[in-house]
Simulated scan of single mutants.
Amino acid sequence: MALIVDHGLRPESAAEAAGVAAQLAEHGIAARVLALSLPGGAGLQERARAARRAALLEACHAAGAVHLLLGHHARDQAETIAFRALRGSGARGLAGMAPLSVAAEALLLRPLLDVPQARLFATCAAAGLRPVTDPSNADPRFARARLRQVGGLEALLAAAPAFAARRAREEAAVLARAATCLRLLPEGCAFLDHAALGRDATARALLAALVRMVGGRPHAPSSNAVARLLAAGQGSLGGCVWRGGWLAREAAAQTIPARPGALWDGRFRLPRDPSLEDGQVAALGPAAAARMRARHRHLPSLALAALPVLRGGDAMLAKAAHLPYRETLCAGLSAARFTPLGGPLAG
């Protein structure tokens, strides 16, 4: 199954997407167009990238597809490395896009990262396919488009394998350290043994990944900020609080409609239950957490307060994720899963 994303940012994009779907149909490939309606404004390409990824993964989940193959090629990889270098990325960023990465809905695979763009055009021509080029890719308003005008970017690819090998070694070290000092709970919080964690580069990498996960952020905080938090042994960073060994999310003020399958607070995937559609999802909050604390002593108060609950109309507290108790109004969010936006601890 082919998935085509129409961002809806140009008047002609719908016709282009339909044309690509028609070409695929001629070759016996089922295609589905995913139409987005993105508003203009600041950070357009970043927002488009995030919306595109979310739509593709949601379509995979709906179709029962466990693999999502993306078409990034060698020049895309070179541009990514150059863009990250200009932004001051470290070794992990300079490794470029990973050929395999993990999301809750599917594995993301990039099988064409070492294939030159010219070869792909030639392959399409030999197959009688007419490639469609998005003119936004040449729009000088965007930093990536300006990078595309720079010659010799492919030379950067020579450094990518070395950085990728270093990233793999770092991830292995992080997972090994986590096994000695970390207890990660499905309620989206973690307990860290500070002494076993240490203060070296692996400790900083592990703490950065945990802050990203527990905070529901797409990216880890800066290495300098993580180093300061590690040195202090407690504090706040990335929407998280580290105190008494516990790393927990601060209760968010976010309230969203309870759409089946939605991601709340960048952390919890709601169940695909149509009965949720009449409610709202919000954080449990400190007051309710205090009332429930005696029955859920395995969690720190901060983590308890940050869990999602379902509220419907004038109804009081419904069922909180992972916290079964008798005063429930419906099955609610008991099946919500901790699937952080930025992916797992490593990989």
Rank of each mutant, 00 (worst) to 15 (best):
V214F: 03
V214W: 01
G216K: 02
G216E: 05
G216N: 04
R217K: 15
R217M: 14
A220C: 08
A220E: 06
S222I: 06
S223L: 13
N224E: 15
A225T: 03
A225G: 07
A225R: 12
A225Y: 04
A225V: 03
V226S: 01
V226Q: 01
A227Y: 05
A231I: 01
A232Y: 09
A232H: 08
G235I: 01
S236T: 12
G238L: 00
G239F: 01
V241Y: 02
W242C: 02
G245K: 05
G245F: 01
G245E: 07
G245S: 10
L247V: 05
L247K: 08
A248G: 06
E250H: 07
A251C: 10
A251H: 04
A252F: 08
Q254P: 02
P257E: 10
A258I: 05
R259C: 07
G261F: 08
D265V: 10
G266N: 07
R267G: 06
R267T: 05
F268C: 12
R269G: 06
R272H: 14
R272F: 13
R272W: 13
S275H: 10
Q280I: 11
A288L: 15
A290S: 14
A290W: 09
A290L: 13
M292A: 15
A294V: 09
R295Y: 15
H298L: 11
H298Y: 10
L299D: 02
L299S: 04
P300Q: 14
P300K: 07
P300E: 14
A303I: 00
A303V: 03
